[in-house]
Computed example of a mutant assay.
Amino acid sequence: MEDTGYAFDDLKKFDDLKEMGYPSELIEALLRITKRDGEFQQEFAKQAGRHPVA
Rank of each mutant, 00 (worst) to 15 (best):
D15R: 11
L17C: 07
A54Y: 06
F8N: 00
D9T: 09
H51F: 06
L17N: 05
V53R: 13
K46R: 14
E28Y: 01
A54H: 05
K12V: 11
G5L: 08
R50S: 15
A45M: 10
D10C: 05
K13A: 01
F8A: 09
D10N: 15
I27K: 02
Y22M: 14
E19D: 07
Q41N: 13
F8W: 15
E28W: 05
L17W: 06
I33C: 10
A45V: 10
T4K: 00
L11T: 13
D15N: 11
A48N: 02
F8H: 10
F14R: 02
D10K: 13
E28D: 15
K35E: 06
P52F: 11
P52W: 12
M1N: 04
R32I: 01
E28G: 00
R32L: 04
D3L: 04
K13L: 07
Q42Y: 10
K18S: 09
F40P: 02
F40I: 07
A7R: 12
A54Q: 08
D16K: 07
Y6F: 15
H51S: 12
D3H: 10
G5N: 05
R32W: 00
R36L: 09
F44H: 10
Y6V: 09
E43N: 12
V53A: 08
F44D: 08
P23D: 13
G5F: 02
D10Y: 05
D10G: 01
Q42C: 04
A29I: 03
K18M: 05
I33P: 04
E2C: 01
F8V: 07
L17E: 06
D16V: 07
F8Q: 02
G21C: 01
R32P: 00
K35L: 06
I27W: 07
L17V: 09
K35H: 11
K46D: 14
M20A: 14
E25A: 12
L31N: 00
K46T: 12
K46V: 12
D37H: 04
E43C: 08
G5H: 02
Y6T: 03
K12P: 02
F8M: 04
P23F: 10
Y22R: 13
A29G: 03
L30A: 09
D10H: 09
K35V: 00
D10E: 13
L31F: 00
G21S: 05
R36C: 01
V53H: 13
F40L: 15
F44W: 13
K12L: 11
F40T: 10
E19S: 08
L17F: 08
K35Q: 14
M1F: 02
F40R: 15
D10M: 08
E25F: 10
Q47F: 02
E25W: 10
R32V: 05
A29Q: 06
V53L: 15
A7D: 07
Q47A: 08
V53K: 15
A54W: 03
A48S: 11
T34W: 03
G5E: 12
E43F: 08
A48H: 07
A7Y: 04
F14I: 07
K13F: 00
P23M: 08
R36M: 12
Q47R: 14
M1I: 01
R50M: 13
L17P: 06
K13H: 07
M1Y: 01
Q41L: 13
I27H: 02
G38N: 08
S24P: 03
P23Q: 11
D10L: 06
M1W: 00
E28T: 08
